[in-house]
Design a protein around this nucleic acid. Structure first.
Lengths: 186, 186
DNA sequence: TGGGTCATGTAACCTGTTACATGATTAG
DNA sequence: CTAATCATGTAACAGGTTACATGACCCA
């Protein structure tokens, strides 16, 4: 699994600094991958050691210097190979803390669990709103849909998935709340 | 975070060995948590050090001895506290290798990507079939729905979620394939 | 004057994964 | 005869998280 290859992919669109990458990642793969800045810097370092990246420092006087990374040909090869490796992610719903808690929620009162679901719904609504609004503006750093017509379709696919996912969460949570309220009434 | 509490939860239903826990986990929380046996044993050890569990060895002659774990009161307290901690899992679609690959799939040919989606669909269908069949039999180790009426509703909630999730994956993948075929035709 | 942005990182830690090892019994 | 089941683990590693540190500039 790997942020690693996500970074390679983004850098293949455009040379960037770690700081830029954090923002680019949030704006592009952020719907399904939450990247930590500290990890980004670590990965960049590691990949430079591997020879997958090279970097140049841009000196600035009024702001901190910027270290700009570029993918080498061996880095791009590694990326392409990763893309071809068998995609069988075992179904990718294989670690959900929230579901774990729900599973054991019989320990709590019905009323309390309704509140938990309502909180969950709020979070989903926020996520959905973020995804909808993001859609209107284009991707940053020169990665526009016009710029990358072949890629844009796949960007939409992942976007659609994320949206559909959070909508599913909302309807599911509504059903759960309905069932719990029914129990309260009886 | 954290198989640990899942194990505590299951042990609160019934005393068990690590081996039993692996099977119980697969049968109960397996829809949304893939637990490794090696990690189970490590966690059991660790929790015994913490004083959250105690264990007794059951000697057997014809088979390996069994180490049976029970939750202590401090273990149960830790479990309850975890349940109450704020549930805000940031949305739990925050790490998907599959989506990462799809996002960057513009590098491949349309035909190849159609095959990738078809493989994905097959995996989802298998998962769905597993979930449907599991439903018919009851949970193992005395954890029946009649036995735990308060819990059973929440078990169903997580079950419903997993099923709805894989169904969503299927319809999404179908839409993607349709879009790709349309592109092939034009 | 306080908080946000720009920009880089380190260190310790936690959690989960992979690969391996052992060895008897039982069912096909 | 072979594979699965029972049953327990260890060791090394990979990947991700949290907390912290630095410091200037800009805007309200």
């Amino acid at each position: 699994m790997s942020l690693r290859f996500g970074l390679l992919g983004l850098l293949s669109y455009q040379d960037m600094t770690g700081y830029d990458l954090k923002k680019a990642a949030d704006a592009t793969i952020g719907g399904f991958w939450d990247a930590q800045a500290s990890q980004i810097y670590r990965e960049l370092n590691y990949m430079e050691d591997l020879g997958w990246l090279t970097s140049v420092i841009e000196f600035q006087t009024d702001r901190p210097n910027r270290r700009i990374y570029s993918v080498t040909s061996s880095g791009h090869q590694a990326f392409l190979q990763w893309l071809l490796e068998n995609h069988t992610d075992k179904g990718h719903l294989n670690k959900s803390v929230f579901m774990m808690k729900i599973f054991f929620s019989g320990e709590h009162s019905t009323a309390e669990n309704i509140r938990v679901f309502q909180q969950f719904k709020k979070n989903c609504e926020i996520k959905l709103a973020e995804l909808e609004s993001k859609n209107k503006q284009d991707f940053p750093f020169g990665m526009t849909r016009d710029n990358h017509p072949d890629q844009a379709l796949y960007w939409e696919f992942t976007d659609n998935f994320a949206k559909a996912y959070y909508k599913l969460c909302l309807t599911w949570a509504n059903d759960c709340v309905a069932a719990l309220e029914k129990r309260l009434a009886s």
